[in-house]
Each structure stands twice: as structure tokens, then as C-alpha cells.
Amino acid sequence: MTDRGIEVVRAGALTTVQDLGRPGHAHLGVTCSGALDRTSHRLANRLAGNPAEAATLETTLNGCAVRVTADVTVAVTGAPCPVTVEGRPAPWGAPVRVPAGSVVAAGAATHGVRSYLAFSGGIGIEPVLGSRSTDLLSGLGPEPLADGAALPLGAPSGPPSHSHLVAYPGPPRSLVLPMLLGPRDDWFTPAALRTLASSSYRVSTASNRIGLRVEGPGLERRGAGELPSEGMAMGAVQVPPDGLPVVFLADHPTTGGYPVIGIVPEEALCAAAQAAPGTALRFTPVRPRRPLVPHQR
């Protein structure tokens, strides 16, 4: 049997190996990392016959192309894009049989940002702290893909699946991010909370795997105090001194010293990961239903 692997023909703007990340290490300063759009990552794996934790390739805006060294099943999900095998059109969002020696390519995203390429058997590099994900903040896991790089594939574990209905996402006109206020909403003026709830923001070009950055009205703090470093959660909306909220994504720092006005639930972060720069964005902050400890605050 030939060695199962892929050779990078066109790495694309930023293509990284991603799985479900390395949770449980935040106390060591190691962030969760993993696929930004977990739903699309899982779907790609399911279509290719892999378990959810198999490693896929996550592309950024302009896709990537790889040559497979053995017969493999490939599935492309996430940001819709033209898929080709040896230059011939192939379906997006479905298992595609790719013969040994052929080049499979995911083109530029027609909308959205990140496409996911799952290969039967998954990317088979050695895991670091239980994950194969590239953590761009701390440099754990493999380097982002470079032209000419070679990566091994694991052994296929199950048959590809044709039976799932794959919803083809429409172009997102705007992104709405729900948010539960806290832990530090009391660091902001009532006017800032109104601004947050009523303003239209735009996704900034400075967004990356660490955070979704926005353009729009700044949020004013009540006082000038400094916050001692505290733990940062995935989805935390941190507000640095310029007042512009940053939504922390998978490669976010584990601790930080700017107040977090609210938390975007993890299931809403998949949509955030697919919002291209310039996309209109609104936050819908709500207060937690009841105080954590009655009569204490």
C-alpha cells in the first residue's frame, strides 16, 4: 500500500490543520484552538467517513490545492467554493473520490471566509497535547501550510456518508451575535451598553483566528481603573482602551487585562468565523436571567 498523504500544490492565503482543539490546558496558558467553524469541520469529517475529532484543513478566503498520494475521499464544506479534481468540477458539500496522484482544489470562497477540507483518515501528523490544531497565538501544532509541504493521512476509519442533507448557506448580508452580559459589563457606562445594543458595526480586516475585530462606535468605560489579568473564555467580548469590542475566537489568549462586557455563545461563533471583512454586524446583548447568587449583589 502506498503511503497515504497529501502534497501542498497551492497553500492559499492561510491554510492550517485544525481539529476540535486542545481544551483543558488553559491553566497552562494554552488556548483551546481548533476549527473556527466547528459545525462545518464536523460536517466535512462526517461526509469523508471520519470521526468529528479527525484533523481537517481550514482555508482562508482563497482556498488551497493539494495532490493526494493515495486514493482518498475528500469533502469540502464551510465557505462555499468551486471544488475541482484535476481541473474538473466536483461537488461541494459531498464526498468526492480522488484517485492517487490527482490534485484536489478548493477555490476562492464565493461567500464566507473559511472552507474545510476533510480527507478520509484525517491529517495524520503527531498531536501536541492531544490535538493536531495549529494555534497561531502560541505557535503550537504544525506551521500553516506552505507550497510543497507534505502531510501524512491517517487510516480511513469508516465509509463516506452520502446521506446527510447539506444546507448550502446563503450569502450572509449581516451577522447578528447574541451576547450574555458579564462578567465586566459594570465597567461600562449605561450609554455604552445602549450603544452596544443599538449600533451597527462592521467586521474589520484586522480579524483573525484570535479574534473578530470590528469597526463602529467605541464603548465608554465608567472609570479609568485597571483590571488585573483574568481568565478569558472563548466568545468573550473584550473591550480594549480604544472602546472597540473584540470577539475572542479559538486562538484567543487565556488571560487578559481588558474588561469583558459579555460572552457570545460558542454555537454563534461558527457564523462569526464566516463573516468576511465589511460584513454588517449587530450585537444583541441580554442580561443573564437571574443573579447567580440571590440577594448578594
Binding site: 483543558g24 488585573p228 489579568s229 483574568e230 473564555a233
Partner: peptide, 14 residues
């Protein structure tokens, strides 16, 4: 999932 101590706080996640 996570117990993250910091300067004056402990964050619990999951």
C-alpha cells in the same frame, strides 16, 4: 472543562 486562576480570580468553563 477549564479551571483558570489569574491575578485575583478563578475562571471556570464548561
Amino acid at each position: 472543562r477549564e479551571i483558570v486562576p489569574a491575578a485575583r480570580t478563578v475562571l471556570l468553563q464548561g
